[in-house]
């Protein structure tokens, strides 16, 4: 299994990367950590004419604290965000979820934004970004725009990122007073993609629950002021709404059962952690 031929460009500036994307469109592919793209190249599921390496564009290599958010640039590796000393304080939910993204040996290369760009329905980072109502900043040769996570993930591994655009950075909202967070995941082994993953943000009596691994993209729902059997009913409705399917890893009914059970546990834990 060897990749088909492609040109390789190591971009030193964003403008260089934009120029190649503008000229080559769908024949160009960005490479960040390569943890997903290189297997796709090797299996020839992707056959770009040119691969653009964005890891040497200095401004993209930063983690920056903004007023209400943490800005993570496209060249920041998952391990770097996990090692960032302020993470657990500024956004505990991301700190809880990151250790579930693959293994230490893949987080050391894979980027935070690459996972968002790839938009695997089981991926933890897109799920957390959606649960937190984060944003994605896209740029192309002529434009720059911000898209809410709610609008960014459009289907199975498809996103609002156009052919001539790339993700510059993502904005992870900082924790606010009174919020509680929890993350739970069920998989065969730690480090495998999730069969079902849940991320919850609790505030007052309402809670926002994100679910990954079931629908064709991560899905989040606001559950207002629900407890006891009303909460169970809402989780049951959510489990059915996600239209789970049978696959090699789990049956649809098993996934629905996990949404009800893991969803409830995650919500209860997030409520306990409100501070």
């Amino acid at each position: 299994m060897k990749p088909a031929r492609f040109d390789y460009v190591r971009a030193d500036t964003l403008a260089e990367a934009h120029a190649v994307l503008a000229a080559e469109g769908e024949n160009a592919r960005v490479i960040a950590g390569g943890q997903t793209l290189v297997p796709m190249l090797s299996m020839r599921l992707a056959r770009p004419k040119v691969v653009i390496d964005i890891m040497h564009i200095a401004p993209l290599a930063k983690i920056a604290e903004e007023k209400d958010a943490i800005r993570v640039g496209a060249a920041v590796r998952q391990a770097e965000l996990l090692e960032w000393p302020a993470l657990a304080e500024r956004q505990p939910l991301m700190a809880m979820a990151l250790p579930w993204v693959g293994h230490a040996q893949t987080r050391s290369r894979g980027t935070v934004c690459g996972s968002v760009a790839h938009a695997d329905p089981s991926a933890e980072i897109p799920l957390v970004l959606l649960a937190l109502k984060g944003e994605i900043e896209l740029s192309s040769r002529r434009h720059k725009r911000r898209v809410a996570a709610e609008e960014f993930f459009t289907g199975l591994m498809s996103t609002a990122c156009a052919e001539n655009e790339l993700i510059d950075s993502i904005l992870i909202p900082s924790r606010r007073v009174g919020e509680g967070f929890a993350f739970r995941e069920f998989g065969r082994r730690h480090g495998d993609f999730a069969i079902v993953a849940c991320a919850a943000v609790a505030k007052g009596n309402s809670v926002r629950l994100g679910v990954g691994g079931v629908a064709d993209r991560p899905v989040a729902r606001d559950l207002l002021d629900l407890d006891g059997s009303a909460l169970d009913d809402a989780l049951d409705t959510l489990a059915w709404d996600l239209e789970a399917r049978d696959d090699l890893h789990a049956s649809a009914s098993y996934r629905r059962a996990l949404v009800r059970r893991l969803g409830k546990e995650t919500i209860e834990e997030a409520r306990r952690c409100r501070a």
Partner: peptide
């Protein structure tokens, strides 16, 4: 495996672990 799942090819690049089969030769310049 040559597609990132087994770890047999693990090396260190600039002080970080990496699967060599998930790295393109020109990336190590």
């Amino acid at each position: 495996c040559e597609h990132g799942v087994c770890g047999a090819c693990t090396v260190e690049i600039d002080g970080r672990l990496a699967r060599a089969c998930l790295t393109l030769a020109p990336q190590i310049e």
